[in-house]
Simulated scan of single mutants.
Amino acid sequence: MILVSACLLGHNTKYNGGSNDHPLLIKYNELGKFVAVCPECLGKLPIPHPPSEIIGGSGKDVWTEKAKVISNQHHVVTANFIHGAERVLEIAKQYKIKAAILKERSPSCGVHQIYDGTFSDKRVSGEGVATALLRKNEIAVYSEEEITEKLLQKLLDENHA
């Protein structure tokens, strides 16, 4: 089994109530080899909710309390993001997950990039809160932007999904 951001599979879990449909992942979802998760939903944030960004670093820094997650309404939502990431890890352990495909630039799921915390649409290198926790627990994390049919088939084969 492979962990996948629910929004990529057509679930309306995006902060604004929409989804980030990824046609290839939706096609392969029919095989029943994915476990859909949304760290923000699992962190008890409503859908929709105000957009959030990491201030002072990346998801890795959130875990060491060097950074925090705030909404564009200036509410600190770090606890929601931490709780959601912990729930995602619990699910990953339950299913013996070794790989995840997550939504790039999300403050939860960003793999290579996140937004810089100024709500100005500026991207920086970094990872989201859930991605950092999964990596810390030796789960390989891929962005939907790097997924090709060849890589997806390789991941399915490697993970005996």
Rank of each mutant, 00 (worst) to 15 (best):
G56L: 11
H83R: 13
G84T: 13
H112G: 05
V88F: 14
N72W: 01
P107L: 01
K66I: 06
L102Y: 09
I70L: 07
H83Q: 14
K68Y: 09
S52C: 15
K96R: 14
S125R: 05
H75P: 01
H49P: 08
H83E: 15
D116W: 11
Q113T: 06
T64Y: 12
T131D: 00
S120V: 01
V69C: 07
K66E: 13
G110R: 00
T131A: 08
T78S: 12
L89S: 10
I55S: 08
H49A: 14
P107Y: 03
G128P: 03
D116Y: 08
V62T: 10
T131M: 07
S71N: 12
T118R: 08
Q113V: 01
W63E: 10
I114K: 01
G57M: 12
N80K: 12
K98M: 03
E127V: 15
E53I: 05
K103P: 09
V124M: 09
A79G: 12
G59Y: 12
G126A: 08
I54K: 00
I82G: 07
A100I: 07
E86A: 09
G56E: 05
H112K: 05
K60Y: 12
K103R: 04
F119E: 08
V69A: 03
I114M: 03
G117C: 03
A99T: 10
R87Y: 11
Q94T: 14
I54F: 02
D116Q: 04
G57T: 08
D61V: 02
K66V: 07
K60Q: 12
N80C: 15
L89D: 11
S120P: 01
I91A: 08
I97N: 10
S108P: 00
A132D: 07
S120A: 11
G84S: 12
E65T: 14
K98Q: 11
H74M: 12
G110K: 00
R135H: 02
V124F: 03
F119V: 04
V111D: 00
R123C: 06
E90M: 14
K93P: 13
